[in-house]
Amino acid sequence: MQAMPPRILVGDDNETFRTVTAALLRREGYDVDLADDGRAVVEAMAARDYDLVLLDVSMPGLNGLDTTREIRRLPPPRSGVPVLAVTAHAMPGDRERCLAAGMDDYLTKPILPKDLLAIVQRWMRRHPPGAGNAQAAGDDDPIDDFALTLLAEQTDPEILPSLVGTFVAEVRTRGPKIADALAAEDWQTLERQAHALKSASHSFGARYLARALEGIEAACAAGDTDRARLLAQTVPELADAAVEALMARY
């Protein structure tokens, strides 16, 4: 059976941008749907599975930030689909606000076609087509094996178990520090600890832990302590699940 092409949703109130972006992505083999406002984006996400969302930040009505918050409230796996912010504004703090709202990356208009395709392809590699949808069929594995495969190719498969052991030790060390920082409402330390563990979590495929840590870092940077607190409270469970899954493999 032929694999379905990756499905992308483009949400933007600018018709020219939607049309040009759709043509570019379809030429590369992607299946593209379009929405002209935030509410239409949320409705499309609730009705159909997507692999990636390109979302304008400044839309009338439900803006991109609030739209992303609505997406993150959807049932999994749709709540975890990567959302890339697209904006004509590049003011200080904009990137942090986008990440704090739950977006995964940030592009500034005008966007060159090669840059758009590069970031879409990068996120498709990190979140292979259908990976988000697999959870609907019962795949709630906290570890992304695709990331582990990449890590093995970049290093050496024979030393991967040792590297995993190092990562597990770091999780077990930094997890309590994150909990202590949360209890003390020490947002600077919380941001620092989340940042320190985030990249390694991505590298070792701890996808849900990595997403929470990214959100904590961005929320702390933006001063959104309520969101930082909510995300930090999920870290112990996510960390335990990631460690257990990795130890079962190695």
Rank of each mutant, 00 (worst) to 15 (best):
L99S: 00
R97N: 11
L55A: 06
L74G: 05
M1C: 13
T173M: 10
E158F: 03
T16P: 03
T108Q: 04
D104Q: 13
V81L: 13
R172E: 15
R211C: 13
E43F: 02
A184I: 09
S162L: 05
D115W: 04
M59F: 10
H89C: 11
I216T: 06
R39W: 00
Q193D: 14
T189I: 08
M1V: 14
A184H: 14
V32S: 05
T225P: 05
A147Q: 03
L99H: 00
W187L: 04
L246F: 06
G175L: 02
P75G: 04
D139E: 12
Q193C: 11
R97S: 09
L231W: 06
R7I: 08
E170K: 13
L99M: 11
T16I: 14
P142L: 10
E185A: 15
G175I: 04
V83A: 05
D156F: 11
P110Q: 05
T68L: 02
L151T: 09
L117G: 05
A218Y: 08
L148D: 00
L238V: 01
N63R: 14
D51A: 12
D224E: 14
V10I: 15
F146Y: 06
T225Q: 14
L99W: 01
A147D: 00
P110K: 10
R7W: 12
A22H: 05
D37A: 06
P110N: 07
E214L: 11
T67C: 09
A179N: 07
V10W: 02
Q188P: 02
L213K: 04
E237I: 08
T155P: 05
A228P: 01
D13S: 03
A134Y: 11
L52S: 02
R125E: 03
M247G: 03
P129W: 12
R97H: 07
D224K: 00
V20D: 06
R48A: 08
F17K: 01
E158W: 06
T166L: 14
M103V: 02
A196W: 07
D37F: 11
A242I: 01
R192H: 14
E28N: 10
E217I: 07
H195R: 09
Y106E: 03
A212M: 13
E170W: 00
G130H: 07
R26L: 04
R125W: 00
M247L: 15
V32P: 11
L99K: 00
R229V: 02
S162R: 12
A134E: 14
L9K: 04
E191Q: 15
A35T: 10
R97T: 08
V235H: 03
P75D: 15
